[in-house]
Design a protein around this nucleic acid. Structure first.
Length: 479
RNA sequence: CGGGGCGUGGCGCAGUCCGGCUAGCGUGCUUGCAUGGGGUGCAAGAGGUCGAAGGUUCAAAUCCUUUCGCCCCGACCA
């Protein structure tokens, strides 16, 4: 009996996550270590993420393209820090067509290098700028330790790569896309995030500065859910991306890159999920409403099915994504649990009594048990259901935001810092930048500097060194 | 790469220490009948070269040697 239940989050968060991913049929382990298969239900979530993001990219002037998977190995060595950052995790192709290649090819871990090479070719004049291209792609990074969605050897993402005439424009782009991610996370995924700049230690290899959105998971660990990089002229210099400006002066471009991956699905799982399973935000759920028919005899089946299919058609006409679970071989009770595991926001039940009384039974996934269940007159469903869906969307964001805020603590000394990151959640504190101290904290506590609070006014005293500083940072253990 | 765990019907496991008859159990699967508003019940079935290779033995899931793989925990990372 208990095998049917997930381990609870409290008893084993990690196992809860792993089993949830498998049992909700989001993903499965692939034959190759560290690789995953994204199953249809998981991919449907990704497709909805893609739609929501892609619309935002288009709205901010970007276009999509596709760059190749294989990159000459020498490309990876052109930007010094980039090489060092990625060398250990590259997959290298040494043979093709049965013979050893003259130059090995790397499977892209990210595409700055190929795209930079192409931009060098395409960009001649300031009139060619800005170039605002995004691609939806898979990339490979040979990670040592993997976990479904959060860190696998191969993963799916989008990577935006832009080139600009001025530093100011490129910085503006970097921030714009960070905000796009934050907006998407908040308003589509109901995942509250803290946008901010990464420390020198944590930034992307080859970037001048890296920005991230940081989300708090249900176990209070932090997850970097999206990143945006200001690359300065580093890649432009390494790859010769140059243009003639209005004054006929040859200049290097200023470039950016930004990405969000299937990891974000992990963020959604760990932000909203409960001990019954997944809870999906209505805006991104593959099915927003699951319809479960209930009947005993064949005489009941006819009217029930007729009513429920009519309802489904009505919902679909309202652009609501639905699933009619008409399986004969399992009981309604089984279906309830099954769809709760899979996180469908709203369940609609129709039984003989509802047909008779002209009512519908609705159960909210975000409010478990009887409290989340209500009986309404069927007549008003066209209003009630969309309203409920947006209520659920808002409730999820509210709950997650509350949880996050309840687990962020301001500290002014190292003892409290340790206590917080060990037992309570995130630290928010005045921080005087220092690479070595940052490393020491990581060694002592395994907590890392997540990012800096943007636009801090005034000054404070660093919790560790007592030095004056104008920076406030978040620290937490991360995924 | 270090530490731990595990490979036995689809899945989860027992059996391994101490070798012995036809390799069990739960669940899932198939069929039938009943059931159906919170993980249905009964009955009958199908399904296994015990991760692989070699060895010891009259006899190996079990003992020995080698090997492959996966998961978890640490050092690196979106």
């Amino acid at each position: 009996m208990d095998e049917m239940k997930l381990p609870t989050r409290a008893e084993n968060y990690n196992e809860w996550y792993n089993q949830l991913v498998l049992r909700a049929e989001l993903a499965d382990y692939a034959p190759v270590r560290g690789c995953m298969v994204v199953r249809p239900y998981g991919w449907a979530i990704w497709e909805n993420i893609q739609k929501a993001l892609d619309a935002r990219f288009k709205a901010t002037g970007h276009v999509n393209a596709a760059f190749p998977l294989l990159i000459p190995q020498s490309f990876m060595t052109k930007e010094k820090e980039h090489v060092e950052g990625f060398a250990p995790e590259l997959a290298v192709v040494t043979h093709g067509g049965g013979v050893e290649l003259e130059e090995p090819l790397v499977v892209r871990p990210t595409s700055e290098t190929v795209i930079g090479t192409m931009y060098a070719k395409w960009i001649q004049s300031y009139r060619d700028l800005p170039v605002l291209i995004n691609q939806w792609a898979n990339v490979v990074r040979w990670e040592m330790r993997t976990k479904l969605f959060l860190r696998t050897l191969e993963f799916y993402w989008q990577e935006g790569h832009t080139a600009h005439a001025t530093q100011a424009e490129a910085v503006e782009e970097t921030e714009r896309m960070l905000n796009v991610y934050a907006d998407f996370a908040k308003n589509e995924a109901a995942v509250p995030v803290l946008p901010g700049q990464k420390s020198e230690t944590e930034k992307f290899a080859g970037a001048v500065s890296t920005y991230s959105i940081e989300a708090m998971m249900g176990d209070t660990k932090a997850l970097q859910a999206g990143t945006s990089h200001f690359l300065g002229q580093n890649f432009a210099k390494a790859f010769d991306i140059k243009f003639l400006d209005e004054n006929n002066t040859l200049q290097h471009c200023w470039t950016t890159s930004w990405g969000l991956s299937t990891r974000f699905i992990g963020a959604m799982i760990m932000t909203h999920g409960d001990d019954q399973g997944l809870i999906l935000p209505p805006n991104l759920a593959p099915y927003q409403v699951v319809l479960v028919p209930i009947y005993r005899k064949d005489t009941e089946k006819g009217p029930v099915m007729e009513t429920i299919t009519r309802l489904q058609a009505g919902l679909e006409a309202l652009q609501i994504r639905t699933k009619l679970d008409d399986r004969e071989e399992v009981t309604p009770g089984f279906k309830f649990n099954d769809w709760e595991m899979r996180g469908v926001p709203l369940r609609l039940e129709i039984g003989p009594k509802d047909v008779e009384k002209g009512s519908i039974a609705l159960a909210r996934r975000d409010i478990p048990g009887r409290d989340g269940k209500q009986f309404l007159p069927a007549a008003g469903y066209e209003q009630a259901i969309p309203e409920l869906l947006s209520e659920i969307q808002a409730a999820l964001l509210g709950k997650a935001t509350q949880f996050r805020d309840d687990h962020i603590f301001e500290v002014d000394n190292y003892a409290d810092f340790k206590d917080v990151v060990e037992n309570k959640g995130w630290v928010k504190a005045w921080w005087h930048d220092d690479r070595q101290n940052e490393a020491k904290i990581k060694e002592d506590t395994r907590a890392t500097l997540r990012n800096y609070v943007p636009n801090v006014e005034g000054e404070g005293v660093c919790f560790l060194t007592g030095k004056k500083t104008n920076k406030i940072a978040y620290f937490a253990k991360g995924y």
